[in-house]
């Protein structure tokens, strides 16, 4: 048996499964589980042999395929057969495949549009200055330092006003978007200035949470020029790799 090696083009386990169905000219509504499971597992073996990073999702689907296959080997009990749901063990998988296939088609049709900066171009807007070499000498700060800076601002605030009236309605996602918008405009923001823009204790807590969330998502990064120096927030810029 020979298999075509086209591993790099698969966008995931569902993509691989769709490819196998197409290659064998199978009916998606009536997938022969034994055949497809065998070929799917053979592909995984090959990916392993080629030392490709085998993402966990591939193994999850492999388990699902084997599970469905075994379910289909079981004789259908009389009682079950008469029951309302005469469920095909493949139903969920088929639904998932069809949905994924529909989105794959959408993705292809989007890619065929006249994309800005690929197929069509508009007048160039003035290029904003990128932060200069000073960024290089900066050190990425840890969570500990962020909390320390936060504590300083919070403590100062405690002395300034103890009275707090809950009038400001804020949501974390609003704050996240505000910070992202500010960052897009300013290129970098001072951590303490960001905290100080919020007047209430609740406000600065939301700001801190928003920054932590953005850092967790790796959308922003925090840098510091010297120990105990001011912390600045930068948008994370390196290109993402995606499998």
């Amino acid at each position: 048996m020979s298999y075509e090696v086209k591993l790099d083009i698969f966008e995931g386990p569902l993509d691989l499964l769709l490819y196998l169905i197409r290659k064998n000219e199978l009916d998606i509504y009536n997938i022969p589980m034994a055949l497809i499971t065998e070929q799917y597992l053979a592909h995984l073996e090959m990916m392993k042999a080629l030392n490709l990073d085998l993402a966990g999702e591939y193994l999850v689907l492999a388990a699902t395929l084997v599970h469905i296959k075994s379910k289909m080997l079981l004789p259908v009990e009389e009682g079950e057969k008469e029951g309302e749901e005469e469920a095909d063990p493949r139903a969920d998988l088929v639904r998932q495949l069809l949905e994924y296939q529909a989105f794959k088609e959408v993705a292809l049709s989007l890619d065929k549009r006249k994309l800005l900066d690929r197929d069509v171009f508009k007048r160039i807007q003035p290029v904003e200055e990128t932060p200069g070499e000073e960024e290089d000498s900066m050190v990425e700060v840890t969570l500990f330092e962020l909390i320390e800076a936060f504590k300083q601002v919070a403590e100062r605030m405690d002395k300034e006003d103890l009275l707090e009236i809950d009038t400001e309605r804020i949501s974390l996602s609003d704050r996240i978007n505000e910070i992202l918008e500010d960052l897009a405009r300013e290129k970098s923001l001072s951590f303490t200035d960001l905290l100080k823009t919020s007047r209430t204790r609740k406000g600065i807590i939301y700001t801190l949470l928003a920054i932590l969330e953005l850092m967790k998502m790796r959308v922003v990064r925090a840098f510091q020029a010297d120990p105990f120096g001011p912390i600045r927030i930068f948008p994370a810029v390196e290109e993402s790799t995606d499998g």
Partner: peptide, 25 residues
């Protein structure tokens, strides 16, 4: 759930390209 793979990487790229944004929770 739809794509069957981890999408944090591609979401991050799309956020950076400003094609996608956070709309809420």
């Amino acid at each position: 759930k739809i794509r069957g793979v981890d999408v944090s990487g591609s979401l991050k790229g799309l956020l950076e390209k400003k094609l996608v944004r956070i709309v809420g929770r």
